[in-house]
Amino acid sequence: MNAFCNFLKSTIGRKVLMALTGLVLVGFVMGHMLGNLQIFLGAEAINAYAYKLHEVLPSSALWAVRLFLLASVAIHIWAAVTLTLDNRRARPSGYDADRVIQASYSSRTMRMSGVILLAFIVFHLAHFTARVVPGMQYEDPGVIEETEVPLVKKGEAVLKNGEVVMTFNVNDMMISGFQVWWVSAFYVIATGLLCMHLTHGVSSMFQTVGLRNALWRKRLDKLALAYGWVVFLGFAMIPIAVLGGILEKDPSGGLVSGVMEPSESATLAQTEQN
């Protein structure tokens, strides 16, 4: 245990933790983005996706995942803060003629991008997960017409035990959220910063765990840049599409015609229970 404490005390140990938690978050970000992009498939798809996330797994598992992610964020931040304090102590005064030789802008601004991202994450969770941002009371008329809509498959409502399965209208929540211009702007800026954070972070984490050399550094730097851009475009596309009127609210939740045949809906409900 003592050995583990020493590891945590060391600069390298904390960096390794940052890299590992970073890796978790990098993976999460990609998954989250792919999930979000389903909005382009229509309300049916995105709502079904949200339904699966919430209802398929037992809520304890969902919370376990959430806590794991939260812990990763917390450890990532703790390591960043303590290392930053150590680093400040190590270099109390800078140069009068301060010059950068080769370090990229993104690598030098990890703390700035990190802090803004943290603020964004808090806002984002309040906005879309806890739904407590003042002035955006989602139940208010005019914000989301229908908060509960039927779960839809192939244009038909899904039945379970003879009743229509209802789900939260994520599609409308996102679209109404992004119709507020400054929310969208913040979202685009934040994902831009995320892109910057990743272009350094994704390559840097390989260095920290010792799996990088001069040859792979070039490759990983390119990979990180590509990853960052993919994430940025993937996320930023949605608010832009909303503001551009490409994505629109759908109070029906994607319902095209009546109710699904019981046999089919039973299979769906069954798979969902598994």
């Binding site: 904390r14 270099r91 950068v100 370090a103």
Partner: peptide, 18 residues
Amino acid sequence: MVTTMDGEGFGGCTNIGE
């Protein structure tokens, strides 16, 4: 060596390459 390095008060690496 890492223990001594940290103990001397050097900061951590942020992989920026300066």
